[in-house]
Design a protein around this nucleic acid. Sequence first.
DNA 1: CTGTTAGCGCGTTCAT
DNA 2: ATGAACGCGCTAACAG
Lengths: 326, 326
Amino acid sequence: MKTVSRVFNHEPNVRPETRAKVEAAAKALNYRPNPSARSLAGHRSYLIALAYDNPPGHYIMDLMSGVVDACETAHYSMMMRPVDYDSHSHVDVIAECVGQYAPDGILLVPPLTDDAALLARLAEAGTRLAFVSPLDAQARVGARMDERAAVRELMAHLVALGHRRIAHVKGRRDHGATEWRLAGYRDGLRAAGLAYDKSLVIPGEFSFESGSAALQALLALDAPPTAIFAANDDTAAGVMHAALARGLRVPDDLSVCGFDDQPMARQLWPSLTTVRQPVAAMGRIATEQLLLSIRDASAGTMVEVPYALSLRDSTGPVPTRAGRRR
Amino acid sequence: MKTVSRVFNHEPNVRPETRAKVEAAAKALNYRPNPSARSLAGHRSYLIALAYDNPPGHYIMDLMSGVVDACETAHYSMMMRPVDYDSHSHVDVIAECVGQYAPDGILLVPPLTDDAALLARLAEAGTRLAFVSPLDAQARVGARMDERAAVRELMAHLVALGHRRIAHVKGRRDHGATEWRLAGYRDGLRAAGLAYDKSLVIPGEFSFESGSAALQALLALDAPPTAIFAANDDTAAGVMHAALARGLRVPDDLSVCGFDDQPMARQLWPSLTTVRQPVAAMGRIATEQLLLSIRDASAGTMVEVPYALSLRDSTGPVPTRAGRRR
DNA sequence: CTGTTAGCGCGTTCAT
DNA sequence: ATGAACGCGCTAACAG
């Protein structure tokens, strides 16, 4: 009997005893459905692609482990599709991937989530999409976090420590994260009754190097900041490294904080105050929603995950003039 | 005509003009072979699995990017198979993966490379294997590096700086890396005419935490070391963090070095002296060799890749007694 | 609720 | 050197 197909696909309309009989036989024969045959006959690939831009470092590792988790329980497999966003080849690369492997869904990570050309190309291919932290509020399937509110809280922490001159090193252009974190920074200033001083806002790249460079620029100011909120942990690491190299003490002379809470944040010295983003959970959740929307195009939602502040040793009370060294 | 098959498989015995005709037609029709159908009819999956134990952090990211590279040019796809080595479920998990997806090959990463039970199970399944940094010198296909020689050189660097009491924080049990790095450490001592003092050799786990713990133990010694070689960068980060937290200056009071040259190594303060291991290249090369051995069981070799020392700021001259603080 | 029938798109014979 | 027929293991659509 080929009712086995129904059993393995968890379809309804199978008498429990029949189902049990099939399952027993399957176990006895050590039967395992052949993925290729399933795909071929079912016009589905049981494959989802994780498309991302190279740089992000540990972020992708964490995200991936969540995606793998979700795929596994759904008997899907995952393929990695790294692309170079800056080379502008990424649209073709991803389209090629779709053409060749026909994944049932694609999980997009910033900044790919908001690339109009890419989205247009993918829309015409008809592949289901899910988004991690998309800038576009329209994105219907995926996972996000209220980064703006998180930064607002982080800023309140700095203000409570007495800081009044707080700088911000921004993230890369075209990332939603860059906008939200900047917005949270401005919210934080406003809530504390502080003016927005654009000389305290330095462009950045989400990179260690841009953090170091930003610190040099900030120290050259007539009135340097006493605290710096860097747009992510890598940038914060660059800021701290440069500060320590110039003989400043953190947090005695300068407070520094980041965003992401990568493992590195605990390991820096001093350990970094940052915002914990549950990246693995976001990968898992976004994938689950993607799988739902694959089964039923109208299913799947954008799930908001909670953040948490990780207050560590890189932030402290504002230095008094007397206590300042060098 | 179904000679197209021959063309797409790069088989011989096709007249050049026929081949050209087929290729032209394929391009015109935007024809792309269907991977599922290929797999089903050809009894191959065109899939290779990357099996690894969770902890390794950035290492797997780098390795993966090399593996993806190699797979892509060979029109293979890669699947990630993370396992929990300590839970002892890993053999079943990997066997399950083989049963379900029948990958044409599996790339093993330490410590899976040397797990006898796993290798036995995989051997009976008949899947082709490739190894990254296997302990077993018999492993015939994959990529490795002369870690022992690398550490020997690193030790020579410390000795040249005047260090005589050099400690070592070991890696996890069952890792080839742990043995080689220890052997290199002993080689280095021997070359400098220094005695092996087992109180200076502390167990570790390749983790930040084990590095911190090791530092505490070493400082409790009557004659603490002036330099510490940690078995990897994570461990070294833990050592440095704990040292700085205790008020020691690196490298003025204590020199520290690691192994791997992960991106983090540049970003620590002070930046970390370490051994550069070309992980991405190893992933690519091991995959290439695996693919060769899939086509022809007798093909594929173990390729040795070169190392390089990254001498940075965490190592310096041995402190004079007078210069020592606290 | 369950069995039957026909392909899915390609590799693999075997003729030609 | 090339074409025709068959079948890989499964799902889909229907018939019972």
